[in-house]
């Protein structure tokens, strides 16, 4: 039998922070695509479940010079020393060599949350509650993504169900490699400002690879050396200076003190 070699890809995205206006459509589309349940009534920002969370960070100046930047943060898909992979006692996390996507198999997860502590981007979420939809709304669930139970960790996987569907489509026609047009994560699809460019970073012809090398592109916490595959770009210097900050904590600091 022939060998099953496919072209290896390293999927990533470049998010243009100057285009993002904080409408939240990406986060909504993500929850719909990935069967993320509505918040439990006692859920808070800390116990919430959002594979993609849009952080609002202000420039700290007074009104009307005050400006905000909206930063969509999902799993940054670290390629090197992937912190969550190295700490998982359960082998529930790995890096898919075919896509570069950091996986999370919730059925295998035992809920120790070590990976959450290890993740520098706070992009992993724990199921503090049973997944619950209003009666009948189960009919709207996406069969391509499994439902996670209480007590396990989950996170963004670049809409892996869509990659699998693209892969199956290619395979049905005898091809090993997918058509890039068939694999677009839900957030990218939903952005009304076309702020997110997605593609194979190893393919020099892809828009994402080009955008990731453009001037004013940066990654968060690059100094940690985890080689994230989610890039950001902004022409505003104060926004680029956020790269070394923990933006997930800034909002409450800015508003409180």
């Amino acid at each position: 039998m022939e060998s099953a070699e496919t072209t290896l890809a390293r999927y990533g995205m470049v998010i243009d922070l100057d285009r993002c206006n904080g409408c939240g459509a990406c986060a909504t589309a993500c929850a719909v695509e990935n069967n993320v349940p509505p918040a439990n009534t006692s859920a808070t920002e800390r116990t919430g479940l959002t594979w993609l969370r849009v952080q609002r960070v202000s420039n700290g100046r007074q009104f009307p010079q005050n400006r905000a930047v909206y930063i969509p943060i999902s799993c940054q898909q670290c390629g090197e020393h992937t912190p969550c992979v190295s700490v998982c006692p359960q082998n529930a996390v790995d890096v898919n060599p075919e896509t570069g996507v950091v996986s999370q198999v919730p059925a295998r997860c035992l809920g120790c949350r070590y990976c959450m502590a290890a993740c520098p981007f706070h992009a992993r979420y724990f199921n503090w509650f049973d997944p619950k939809w209003p009666d009948g709304m189960e009919a709207t669930l996406n069969p391509d993504v499994s439902i996670r139970m209480r007590g396990v960790v989950e996170k963004c996987n670049f809409c892996h169900g869509r990659w699998q569907a693209a892969k199956a489509k290619a395979a049905a026609n005898g091809a090993r490699d997918i058509d890039p047009a068939d694999y677009v994560p839900a957030c990218v699809d939903a952005c009304p400002e076309k702020a997110i460019t997605f593609g194979n970073l190893d393919d020099p012809r892809s828009d994402a690879a080009r955008a990731s090398k453009s001037a004013n592109a940066f990654r968060f916490l690059e100094k940690l050396g985890t080689d994230p595959k989610v890039y950001y770009r902004s022409d505003r210097a104060w926004v680029r200076r956020l790269a070394d900050a923990d933006v997930t904590a800034r909002e409450s600091e800015a508003s409180r003190g």
Binding site: M1, S3, A4, E5, T6, A92, V93, D94, V95, N96, P97, E98, T99, V101, S103, Q104, V105, R108, N157, H160
Partner: peptide, 8 residues
């Protein structure tokens, strides 16, 4: 058959 595998 040499299929590359990972969790996902």
């Amino acid at each position: 058959h040499g299929v590359r595998e990972s969790c996902l």
